[in-house]
């Protein structure tokens, strides 16, 4: 069975392809592998909006629905868009193999 891969693209364009186990969050994958651009101050509790990412076209639906908590936290993020998510709230499944997320210019 193939391990899902996620591509993280930094604001200036550098790409990082990381293998993530099912059940891990996109935030965890970045922080554990030293991918810069995701600060994740609160440690993944949906309480800080510093793991903000833009989900690439075509993937947003597969990442699941935002909770009311996530929507209200995203109010605090700079430059939030329709495809904004908090990466601590995206849990990896087989369906997300190949997911691409882009990082904002800064997390605050």
């Amino acid at each position: 069975m193939q391990v899902p891969k996620v591509t993280y693209i930094e604001h200036h364009g550098s790409e990082h392809v990381i293998e993530l186990k099912n059940g891990m969050s996109v935030r965890e994958g970045a922080v554990k592998n030293g991918v810069p651009g995701i600060d994740a101050d609160c440690g993944g509790a949906c309480a800080c909006a510093t793991c903000h990412v833009y989900v690439e076209d075509g993937w947003l639906e597969l990442t699941g629905a935002k909770t009311a908590m996530e929507t209200s936290m995203l109010d605090f993020a700079e430059n939030a868009q329709a495809n904004s998510r908090l990466s601590c709230q995206i849990k990896i499944t087989d369906d997300l193999d190949g997911l691409v997320v882009r990082m904002p210019e800064s997390q605050h």
């Binding site: 030293g34 101050d41 609160c42 440690g43 509790a45 800080c48 605050h108």
Partner: peptide
């Protein structure tokens, strides 16, 4: 250090320090 912000002085989780930044 490689990951200097990786410390616990501000706590962790929903009750972490609001004045971190």
């Amino acid at each position: 250090r490689e990951r200097p912000r990786n410390h616990l002085s501000f706590g962790f989780g929903i009750h972490r320090c609001v004045g971190n930044r």
